[in-house]
Design a protein around this nucleic acid. Structure first.
Lengths: 335, 335
DNA sequence: ATGAAAGCGCTAACAT
DNA sequence: ATGTTAGCGCTTTCAT
């Protein structure tokens, strides 16, 4: 493992010049640069990130903190972030807070803080004021995905608007008996389920319709939860809704399967819409509102880079609305 | 951000003693240790991993290289590895090779090598001899999950045995017309699909049965692929199989949905078995052979730690067979 | 058991 | 444009 001095020797220059030539900082004549690059390549030289990090205070490494990895949404966000970081020469170190509170404490007390990361991306995580403060104290940029987090730049969806849009799609198709499968309000998820439900209620009321208690069921964002909720909703032949808006695609797919098991046709007997554009949505012909988690990961990286390398225009918006898009497939139809 | 000297000052000792007290290396009297720990806690001191890494040559960081993140199996492996690493005070930096060859080249030439990781876990990845050699040259332990990799310690399933077991389960239930939905042989997946198919063939032949060409379909390991393959297999009422062994749960679930769409009952008209114990398997009542990806991640970490901290007994086995288990649910039944 | 001092490999002022 | 030099913050001999 050759060091910078060996490269310097081979190229016939000083270590400082090698550093400049390879990092692009400072000026180096084209010819020397060429010789240095050649020497480095020949020797297979790669900088030591510890040494470079110690000297500069920058690690070229970003910490990504998520509540679980093994869900479609989170996996996709991480994937997007990873590839965006790689392009910029950054590494991604992953902190999965899935487990215990102990795990969470550890990550904050020891890991994030041990000068290993230059910045943090917090996905769907409600950080305590204290946790945020520690990071701010360290001068480490943070960006939240799925915020908002107090005092932190955040990318988030307008969940109320999403709920409204989904409901309006069903209303526009002539449905009036529209049920909603919502999420249980989890601490970690901010007010996502509540906001989507509000959007649903607003759209219903704006259309002059009542929202019935028996047309709402809460589930846990899984296929099985959606299946069970839909069985309840559709089980009683009298007064069953003609359309269901589920707060996630997995629940919506569960609802489709429940309808089928009840001998109903989708969308003939009941229209179903979800939110996500989950990888399985297309296979099930699910109409949904796409969010783009991988793009969310990429965007988070871009925001960070703005703060890390304050160059041209750095937007000062604290909270950025994420894009979404209605994707109409075959699970919704006119009444 | 206090440094080690500040802690030393507060505790009234030298920096060297702080280092010893906090790292556990070298001897420190219990009372001094206590004072040091108190001072460190009070100041909120955390070591700089760059400085520590530079001084010791160890980073307490492990690189995990995977072909995609956003598949159940890989997510689970990473989750398992992450939590095992966290427990041991290690970080995990993630390299997702999903994308281009360029991405892969970058990761190997620049990232893994830039002295940022102490070891590498390669999941379901066929590394070239050259890639393996570079890592070995750097004295970085590697362990493969889903190997085998040439000259590398590997954890892997006996896929032939898995194929045989799944098939034998169906045979034991009295089935003789057993079809197989296999995987396309992908470069990245070693010979996994081929081996599972061999197991199927061996079990059939051992039972004195023929394997029919029309009872085999290859798919792409997705639900949709399994759905399509099953439609082919079951579409023709004459000569249709009474049981299907799919090489993955996602394909098996696709097959269940296909059977239902054809008006067939599972397991009444057709028994279906998969491999994985995917998170959705229970919901679909799928009989399957469980592999335990999160445990695979944990085991990979343990093997690495054995090499990183050669303590007591370090097994010299190059290739470790992973455990699996038949999980019988409601998708298989007697003929 | 503890301290002093050398250095891990690089970068960034400062000179030239 | 390039070289010299002084650290970055820790760990680890080597003394004591």
């Amino acid at each position: 493992m050759p060091g910078i001095h060996e490269v310097a020797r081979v190229a016939g220059v000083s270590a400082a010049t090698v550093s400049r030539a390879l990092s692009g900082r400072g000026s180096v004549s084209p010819t020397t640069r060429e010789r240095v690059v050649a020497a480095a390549t020949e020797l297979g030289y790669v900088v030591s990130s510890s040494a470079s990090g110690l000297a500069t205070g920058r690690t070229r490494n970003v910490g990504v903190v998520i509540p679980f990895l093994n869900r479609w949404f989170f996996g996709a966000v991480v994937e997007g972030a990873e590839s965006a970081l790689l392009e910029r020469g950054y590494d991604l170190t992953l902190y999965n807070l899935g487990g215990s509170d102990e795990e969470r404490r550890l990550v904050f007390q020891h890991f994030l803080l041990r000068k290993r990361v230059d910045a943090v991306i917090a996905v769907s995580l409600e950080l305590t004021g204290d946790e945020v403060q520690r990071l701010i104290d360290l001068d480490k940029p943070i960006v939240g995905v799925g915020g908002p987090l107090p005092g932190v730049r955040t990318l988030s969806l307008d969940d109320t608007e999403l709920g409204r849009l989904a409901t309006e799609h069903l209303l526009a198709l002539g449905h009036t008996d529209i049920a909603h499968i919502g999420g249980e309000a989890l601490e970690m998820d901010f007010h996502l389920p509540t906001n989507r439900r509000h959007g649903y209620e607003q759209a219903m009321h704006a259309a002059g319709l009542e929202t019935l208690d028996r047309h709402f069921h809460a589930a846990d964002f899984t296929m099985e939860g959606g299946y069970r909720a839909a069985k309840q909703l559709l089980g009683n032949p009298s007064g069953r809704p003609t359309a269901i808006f589920a707060a996630s695609d997995e629940m919506a797919i569960g609802a489709i399967l429940a309808a089928k098991d009840l001998g109903m046709h989708v969308p003939g007997d009941v229209s179903i819409i979800g939110i996500d554009d989950h990888e399985l949505a297309e296979f099930f012909g699910l109409t949904t509102i796409a969010q783009f988690p991988d793009m969310q990961g990429r965007m988070a990286v871009e925001v960070l880079m703005d703060e890390l390398h304050p160059g041209e225009r750095s937007e000062e918006t604290l909270n950025i609305d994420l894009p979404y898009e209605l994707v109409v497939r075959s699970s919704t139809a006119r009444r």
